[in-house]
Simulated scan of single mutants.
Amino acid sequence: MTPAWLWRWRRNPVRRHSDVVEAWIVSVIWAFALLGGVLAGVVAAQGTDSALAARRAHVHPVSAVLDDDAARTPPAGAGNDNGRVWAAVRWTGGDGAVHKGLAKIFPGAPVCSRLTVWTDRTGRIVSAPADGTEATLQAVLTGALVAPFTGATVWAGGRLIRSRLLRRRLAEWDEEWKRIGPEWRNLSGGKG
């Protein structure tokens, strides 16, 4: 016995051509939703990983010196910045020029403390690039978010196609009933 959910595939006298078409559409949509979602997730994860690797290639760590005492406590309402505060730092670039800027450091560091800051090719301080576990986590999370969104988008497109098929099938049934309905009324003696 064929399971009920495979009714469109079974041979039976009331199965229409549109039922078979719908069965194929459902199968193809599910395949595209699953495979497309997985493929989009993998591509997104690889793209994120490549972008993070490119960023790591364009920034580099520099040893800097704290120019002033860091605030003892972070300002109220500083948000979730691990309790760090802004402080003035200086460093010598690869060209021998002294650069100055602001960097986030933990409160209470004394003047002339050494710290590592990240700079871009122009010598501006930038945030540290994601590497190792953090980069892997970002790539995986990006893929994990893109995959179901892509699958759901394909599935929604399939639902739209199926709803149009349903409207067409109902219109066909309506036309057929208009043709057959009067014959039934004649057979039943004009009742109904």
Rank of each mutant, 00 (worst) to 15 (best):
W86Y: 15
A128G: 01
R121N: 15
N80R: 15
G108T: 02
W173Q: 11
W155M: 00
Q138V: 05
V98F: 10
G93Q: 13
I161K: 05
H58R: 14
D69H: 07
L102W: 12
H99L: 07
A87W: 09
G151D: 03
S127P: 06
P75I: 07
G158Q: 08
K178W: 03
A135Q: 03
P61G: 10
A171D: 07
T136C: 10
A87Y: 04
I161M: 01
W173T: 04
A76R: 00
G96W: 08
R168K: 11
W155H: 07
R55A: 03
G96V: 14
V59A: 11
L66Y: 12
R159L: 00
C112P: 00
C112Q: 01
L165H: 01
W86K: 15
W177L: 06
A156N: 02
S163L: 06
E172T: 13
L170V: 07
V98H: 03
N82E: 11
H99S: 10
E175R: 11
G101V: 13
P74W: 05
R121D: 15
G123N: 09
G157R: 00
L170M: 08
V154E: 02
A70E: 09
D174Q: 01
I125H: 07
P61F: 09
P148G: 07
K178N: 06
A97L: 03
L141S: 01
N80P: 14
A171Y: 06
T136L: 13
I125V: 11
V98W: 06
T92E: 10
W86T: 15
R159I: 00
S113Y: 06
R162W: 06
S113I: 12
P148F: 02
G77S: 07
H99A: 02
L115W: 10
L145C: 09
G93L: 14
T133D: 01
Q138N: 05
A53G: 07
G158F: 01
G157P: 00
G143E: 09
S113P: 12
W155V: 01
G151F: 00
T122L: 12
K178I: 08
R114W: 08
D174K: 05
A156W: 05
P129C: 02
H99Q: 13
V59F: 10
G151E: 01
D120Q: 15
W173I: 04
H99R: 14
H99V: 13
R168S: 14
G93D: 15
E175Q: 09
V65K: 14
